[in-house]
Design a protein around this nucleic acid. Structure first.
Lengths: 220, 220
DNA sequence: TTATAATACGAGTGATAACTCATATTTAGT
DNA sequence: ACTAAATATGAGTTATCACTCGTATTATAA
């Protein structure tokens, strides 16, 4: 039984061979989590699926939680790479366009491996990775707040002079939630025709919140 | 080990005494979940905390999951009672006012017992209660869609003739997510001064999405 | 009162799964 | 080729926990 549930690797893998072992283990953990769920994912089972002995597993991971945490971290890093890249690219885009691109990125991220995403979302609290994942969420807020600050003059007037903390929270949380909820409970919304609509609606929702009100266009 | 993980009561409690026993068990389960987390909540531990023998526990609950499911159901029913009541009351209110009241209800619901709410949210997938809880979410959408339909003429023009399914999803999900996320990761936002601001911003966000654009008022 | 049903009890059982350790194999450096 | 360090192995240990079952107590009703 875990006495303390460490989640950091017990030992650094130094040689090529052992790095491969570690990779196999993380890989197998992800596969089993997706295919059989957390409860069936015993350490013995994972080791077997990885083609690695249980002893080797414990050379590198002090607990089952550590394995799951490794999967979570890898997944998060993947996502954050995408997000950072997108935000850097889009810094110059005007507000509405920027919001649309962010919504599109969120949708894309949730579409890539929804089942893994789902299992991990469920297991994050258990693995003590909550703080870590929250860190990414905060980075998201920070990045987006930066984007907003960069476009202050496009904002609706009463937002221009305020701290944009809350506004950023609203936008990022909303977009995240709309895609996340769709991925977990409404897969049809993320499926092919619906995804475009979701991006458009999310854009309208958030852009409408940020931009100054515009008079409706007269019919031609 | 559970062979099938039933989640319905094994036996109906008929006498007053046994109904009390069942209540104690559900109560104790909630307490332990909050104070010690799911993993520490063994059936033996729950029985002990309830002052009930392990044998009696298994008279009424066929598994640990069944206990947690009972807690979830009770909590959900509590919430839904509030939501249904609010929506019935507010059916006549104009859109913006209605949205504000719904946001206020969501905040209120998440403030009542955030720790229980959090643990349950984390444990729902494990207990096979997902479908059940999703049922409530869909009822929420349906109720709100009904409200929207009742106020079609206040909506922005291009929404007036559409099916309001997606619009309802957007609104309900957004409000839910903003409060839920705040409860889990940003308790300061739900704390006393912040909560009002959250309601106002959520209202602006959602109402802005639903209502026709309005020209900004000229300064007096 | 007495018979019967409902409820409560809790030591014990069986299965599981996290984790260890003594031993074997492979690699790297000289 | 030789040696030491790194890596790999897997049967076995230990602990926990969900769950059962034979028995005791309390309520109902005749």
């Amino acid at each position: 039984m875990a006495r303390k549930t460490l989640t950091h690797p017990r030992k650094e893998a130094r040689q090529e061979r052992s790095r491969a072992t570690v990779d196999c283990l993380v890989e197998a953990t992800a596969r089993i989590l997706v295919k059989e769920g957390f409860d069936k994912a015993s350490t013995n089972r994972i080791a077997e699926a990885a083609g690695v002995s249980i002893g080797s597993l414990y050379q590198y991971f002090p607990s089952k939680e550590a394995l799951v945490a490794a999967v979570i971290d890898r997944h998060q890093e993947d996502l954050m790479r995408i997000v950072r890249g997108a935000l850097a690219e889009l810094m110059a885009a005007p507000l509405e366009e920027g919001v649309r691109m962010i919504a599109a990125v969120a949708v894309k991220a949730h579409r890539s491996d929804p089942r893994l995403h789902r299992v991990l979302a469920e297991q994050i609290p258990r693995t003590g990775r909550l703080a870590h994942v929250e860190g990414f969420a905060r980075e998201n807020h920070r990045l987006f707040k930066g984007y907003l600050e960069h476009h202050r003059d496009e904002l609706r007037p009463d937002l221009r002079d305020t701290d944009l903390e809350l506004a950023a929270y609203m936008c990022v949380t909303t977009i995240e939630a709309l895609t996340h909820t769709a991925a977990l409970h409404r897969p049809e919304i993320l499926a092919d025709p619906g995804a475009q609509a979701l991006v458009e609606e999310a854009t309208r929702l958030v852009a409408g919140y940020l931009l100054p009100p515009r008079r409706p266009r007269r019919a031609a």
